[in-house]
């Protein structure tokens, strides 16, 4: 196996580790929530807008500024991901040297060390960001909508234009690059942070909303997709791919599948249903009086609904009965 393929395999492994960590984090860690705050449609709209604008903005910004923006993002991401685990101070104590090291490594030309530390940082950040979204109530339809928007975006930006590859060259080898990398240029092996986030996000949302089976299915789809891409690289059929195009479509497909499989259940009100099915028979209440019904049986009577409810309680019925007026 050549070095390129080893690198690609390593990246796929890192993604699987990220998914594993994120699932574990979801099960064990409660992130602090803002006082009022639910992930809603407008948040997706803003995220998509940022995603579309940002690469263009970065291409026109000095590298130092781009680095600063990414550096802050990584620092904040590390901080809020680790804080619930090791406390706010502990998180700062980890995030600060990690970020400082990336800068030092860049100027010292320790490119392998920079790549490794940045990859680890991105794994942690991706774990935290996806959990933040899911734990603030990001729902499957929103993820599906987001994925659909990304299909369009990635097809255009990566598949049909050079925006993504320009961006990759821009961030290649700089500290805090938002790319998982196994090798930098001249022959880069990288995976965008966006790809990593979406590969991780859908399994989390699927687990939370649709249960374990949907989560396992989502991870299996991720693995098959990465395997197919790997096969494409190995056979030389492709050299790069807008991963979000197939991934987005697969997420949308899974959403529609699970939505149909697991419909929203509106609970029926059993006491009312039972009362409506009941026929009183010989217990036919007199006109103008009230009866209390429990499991279809008359358990109390009275001249008002409250009085009928009370006689039911006195008769030893602990549940709240249904009251009804005697039929004329």
């Amino acid at each position: 196996m050549n070095h390129g393929l080893q690198g690609a395999l390593a990246l796929d492994t890192v993604v699987l580790v990220t998914i594993g960590l994120a699932v574990g984090y979801l099960a064990k860690v409660r992130m602090p929530r803002p006082p009022a705050g639910l992930f809603v449609r407008s948040d997706i709209v803003i995220m998509v807008a940022l995603l579309v604008i940002m690469p263009f903005a970065y291409l026109d910004m000095p590298a130092a500024l781009v680095c600063t923006v990414f550096g802050l993002t990584v620092f904040v991401g590390l901080q809020f991901t680790l804080a619930p685990l090791i406390g706010g101070r502990g998180a700062v104590a980890v995030a600060t040297p990690a970020c400082a090291f990336e800068i030092v490594a860049y100027f010292a030309h320790w490119s392998t060390a920079l790549m490794l530390v940045n990859d680890v940082a991105l794994v942690v950040v991706a774990t935290g960001v996806t959990n933040l979204w899911v734990q603030t109530g990001m729902r499957p339809p929103l993820v599906a909508g987001f994925a659909a928007a990304l299909v369009v975006y990635d097809t255009v930006a990566t598949g049909l234009s050079s925006v993504t590859s320009d961006f990759m060259h821009l961030v290649n080898g700089i500290p805090f690059a938002p790319m998982l990398a196994a090798r930098y240029t001249p022959e880069p092996i990288m995976m965008g942070l966006g790809d990593t986030l979406m590969l991780t996000l859908w399994p989390l949302v699927a687990i939370k909303s649709y249960g374990r089976a949907a989560g396992i299915c989502a991870i299996a789809v991720d693995v098959l997709l990465m395997a197919a891409v790997f096969a494409g690289f190995a056979t030389g059929a492709i050299t790069y791919i807008p991963l979000l195009t197939p991934l987005g479509l697969l997420i949308v497909a899974q959403y529609f599948y699970w939505r149909r499989r697991i419909p929203v259940v509106v609970p029926v009100r059993d006491p009312l249903e039972a009362a409506l099915r009941a026929s009183y028979g010989e217990d036919e209440p007199a006109d103008g009086t009230w009866v209390a019904l429990h499991e279809g049986k008359v358990v109390g009577r009275g001249d008002s609904p409250g009085a009928a409810r009370r006689t039911a309680r006195e008769a030893g019925v602990a549940e709240v009965p249904v009251t009804a007026l005697g039929r004329p």
């Binding site: 006491p271 009312l272 609904p305 409250g306 009370r310 709240v320």
Partner: peptide
Amino acid sequence: DRLATPMH
């Protein structure tokens, strides 16, 4: 009476 009345 209204406080006691079941609503369901």
